[in-house]
Design a binder for these strands. Structure first.
Length: 512
RNA sequence: GCCCCCUUCGUCUAACGGUUAGGACGCCAGGUUUUCAACCUGGAAACAGGGGUUCGACUCCCCUAGGGGGUGCCA
């Protein structure tokens, strides 16, 4: 737990920042109320699809804030829409969070299981005259909207049944329970990211709390659950900003204290438009399959909208230490794969060889063509892969690339050559290898230094530049024109395999 | 239509009334080099526009334009 003096210092800093100056009053009140309490955030996805990148960042922010404050992050599955919620989506979301290493406290709360409690609260509001039965039909509602539009008014429910006596209702007609929202004055949100946001109450209509089938709507459920779960800070996408106003009214009606709100701007696609499947609203599992490391993705995501000076590479520890919602920007960010790749490359280069092999092993089952390498690793390939890793990891931006670049290790003789390798192994190239082959065969210590000495001497003596020797050799050994350092390749492959691959190209099978 | 929010290099961002407007990714040029990466050096590249306030505005206010979100018996 954070010490009290520290919290006060922090509060002071927040209140004194020019950005917050205008919102002093209300913030003081709420902040002090929470001062002694533990921070409890929540991530509340609706299981209607995978965990997309925006959701992942929201989860990360909630997680970071909870960690930074020594609090908790709870997980709530908002599955009140029975038609659209699926078991598969729930699994995908949990799996995605685990992969990103964002753990939550306690068991996930399934919102649907709390429907009875939600209904109870709706009935209470009804009994207190803060809600009412509405018998309007679909057609009536549609007409209402059109008329509002025609009159340039805010569209929405016009209060048709707000003050009507229920006895006027048609016999046995279906009804919903609507919230009797205040019609005058304004509702103010003191948002930790957006600042003070004011809504005129006349623009906020009487929302539905309970559907005609008796099921609670999202707007009711969130308020009740956030309250019952003791949520102190609601950090979510700013597509919920208007909802915050409506929810505030419900809190007010219930006499409950509101949580602190922080609405973070959305993530857009590279073209600035809303994220669509084509450019980035992929499930996090897609990022795993593209070979991104969770740490790299987290680092990328945290910098999308949040900053700490000029820091770019931020360790998990620093992230937790530095994170705070008031450093979150107010404008939307575009998703940029190039930067993600760059970061991922950095994290790959700085991972241990063993960690990368482990990451590859856990990724392989998720890859279409992962079986072959998985099998190779099962037998004796793992040692080779670890051995080759220092050279490989310098050259890969994703695990997928790493896997592709490592493929030559496990390739069966004779190797298939790609186009560039084919070119390198022209007559001159093969001639070079033919001359080199006996020297290598004669070598009795097949390790890096002797190999390098041997090849450099060979190049010198035959008046060839090293590249003229290394490239054909690389082509013969890997089937490609690029690879880790050639001496390392020679060593990792081992004497027999290396000489065998060279022999395949020179046409002189080696006996050595 | 109505309501709310946003606007610094192509992208992510720093700046919190006084800077040659900084960093990162990407891009370009050079270096290093057995290939490719990595790495090093250098370069091009931004305050959306217009009004105020002020001795002084990227920073504060207003308007315009552009972008985004919301406007459900979805969440």
């Amino acid at each position: 737990m954070r010490g009290v003096p520290d919290s006060y210092a922090k509060l002071g800093a927040v209140l004194n920042s020019p950005r917050r100056r205008q919102t002093t009053g209300p913030i003081i009140r709420r902040r002090i109320l929470h001062m002694s309490d533990q921070v409890i955030t929540r991530f509340a996805p609706s299981p209607t699809g995978y965990l997309h990148i925006g959701g992942a960042r929201t989860a990360l922010f909630n997680w970071l804030y909870a960690k930074a404050q020594g609090g908790k992050m709870l997980l709530r599955i908002e599955d009140t829409d029975r038609a659209r919620s699926t078991e598969g989506a729930i699994l995908a979301i949990l799996d995605g969070l685990r992969w990103l290493e964002l753990d939550w406290d306690g068991e996930p709360v399934y919102q649907f299981s709390r429907a009875e409690r939600h209904r109870e609260v709706a009935e209470q509001l009804l009994a207190e005259g803060k809600a009412y039965r509405c018998y309007a039909t679909k057609e009536e509602l549609e007409a209402m909207r059109e008329q509002a539009r025609a009159e340039s008014r805010a569209p929405g429910y016009d209060g048709l049944w707000r003050d009507r006596d229920p006895s006027e209702a048609p016999e046995g007609a279906a009804y919903v329970i609507r919230f009797k929202a205040p019609q005058e004055g304004q509702t103010v949100i003191e948002d930790q990211v957006q600042g003070r946001v004011t809504f005129a109450n006349k623009d906020l209509d009487d929302l539905v709390l309970l559907r005609s089938d008796g099921s609670p709507t999202y707007m009711l459920s969130v308020v009740v659950d956030d309250h019952d779960m003791g949520i102190t800070h609601v950090i979510r996408g700013d597509d919920h900003l208007t909802n915050a106003a409506r929810q505030s009214q419900i809190y007010e009606a219930l006499g409950w204290e509101r949580p602190v709100f922080a609405h973070v701007p959305l993530i857009h696609g590279p073209d600035g438009a809303k994220l669509s499947k084509r450019h980035g609203a992929l499930g996090v599992e897609a990022y795993r399959e593209m070979g991104y490391l969770p740490a790299a993705l987290r680092n990328y995501l945290v910098r999308l909208g949040w900053s700490h000076g000029d820091d770019e590479i931020i360790s998990p520890e620093q992230m937790i230490e530095w994170f705070d919602v008031d450093a979150i920007g107010k404008s939307a960010a575009r998703f940029d794969f190039a930067k993600l790749e760059n970061l991922n490359g950095h994290y790959i280069r700085h991972s241990s060889d063993e960690a990368l092999v482990a990451a590859i092993k856990s990724l392989l089952p998720h890859l279409k063509d992962g079986d072959a390498m998985a099998a190779a690793l099962e037998s004796d390939g793992e040692t080779k892969l670890v051995q080759a890793m220092p050279g490989l990891k310098e050259r890969a931006k994703t695990l997928v690339e790493l896997i592709e670049n490592a493929a030559f290790l496990f390739a069966e003789r004779p190797l298939a050559l790609d186009e560039k390798a084919e070119k390198l192994l022209d007559d001159a190239g093969r001639q070079t290898l033919s001359e080199l082959q006996p020297r290598l065969e004669a070598l009795d210590d097949w390790s890096a230094e002797p190999l390098e000495a041997c090849i450099r001497t060979f190049a010198d003596e035959t008046e060839r530049k090293l590249g003229k020797v290394a490239q054909p050799l690389r082509a013969a050994l890997t089937g490609q024109s690029t690879s880790p350092g050639i001496f390392d390749v020679l060593v990792v492959l081992g004497r027999d395999e290396a000489l065998g691959r060279i022999g395949d190209q020179t046409g002189y099978p080696t006996n050595a």
